[in-house]
Design a binder for these strands. Structure first.
Ligand code: MN
Ligand code: MN
Ligand code: ZN
Ligand code: ZN
Lengths: 150, 150
DNA sequence: TTATTAATGAAAATGGTTTTCATTATCATA
DNA sequence: TATGATAATGAAAACCATTTTCATTAATAA
């Protein structure tokens, strides 16, 4: 019920009404570096905001994604994961451990990668008349811990 | 019940027993250029093999994927899609239309891409002690038809 | 303050996938 | 070729992330 609505101004125009659950969900995502599922977000907010519903979490995540404030990922483990996105935050991709599910953000070789991505996107636009809006790059393998334990 | 079991020899060692459903599913995937869902495979085989069960399709796809004969993709539309994979088949990535779901294979700039991927993988191995086994690149956007209609 | 109606949350529904379990079919062995 | 051990199958039920429904609540404009 409280809430200074820190995000209201930055979010104006995207939403008809700005509410407590929306504030809480967006705020949580801006504070964590993790890639959370809807259930994890729900569980985390339940302490602060006992009345919140999982349905609202799903609906809010959809809205936030559609307005470009967050990004949705499916790392192939059944549930979607979300992370905050903004212009300030540097463009990055993911390293996914196929054993434990750990996700590492990396942005190495961002320039070279961007160059290749741009070039490819331009080429694909010509060859297939396909307009590229976004791209996704991910590496799959084993994290350090999972290499150790066999 | 018939079936010359065309794939048995190439598949030896991966499976305890080679069966009609396994032959049929693998054969279908080698014959199509599409990225099929379990249900699509099931529907397609039902004509040829009326007794087949969707459960078996799911189980077989898991096995085929684990033995590296096919690849599993989640293009963010709820169901997984599968495609045949082999050394002969050139390495490629995907262009996904976010409106109609069409999937286009492309392998342009494969050399440059592979170079960057290798370099990045090596760097990530050093920096994060992460062993890269595979990678995935996809472009999202609008196909030609979907650009036209609106 | 009030009225409008967008947003919420509980419960039920949905849909892809997995599990269970009795039956069937494969294949090594005789 | 016949046989037995057991891997594989398929129908039904369970599972689980997500969506839909609908009565209630709360945000905002007037
Ligand atoms: Mn990330
Ligand atoms: Mn493909
Ligand atoms: Zn790991
Ligand atoms: Zn399209």
């Amino acid at each position: 019920m409280p809430g200074p609505y820190r995000w209201r101004k930055r979010v104006e125009g995207h939403f008809c009404r700005w509410t407590m659950p929306r504030e809480a969900i967006l705020d949580l995502l801006t504070r964590t570096s993790q890639h959370l599922t809807a259930k994890e977000i729900y569980a985390s907010l339940l302490q602060l905001y006992p009345g919140i519903g999982l349905t609202t979490v799903y609906r809010t995540l959809d809205l936030l994604e559609k307005s470009g404030l967050i990004k949705k990922f499916n790392f192939g483990r059944g549930e979607n994961r979300y992370e905050f996105a903004s212009e300030n935050k540097p463009h990055h991709h993911h390293l996914i451990c196929t054993k434990c599910g750990q996700i590492i953000d990396y942005s190495d070789f961002a320039n070279e990668e961007l160059e290749l991505v741009k070039k490819t996107a331009k080429h694909l636009a010509e060859k297939y008349k396909f307009i590229v809006h976004d791209h996704n790059i991910e590496f799959y393998g084993l994290c350090q811990q999972c290499q150790k334990r066999q």
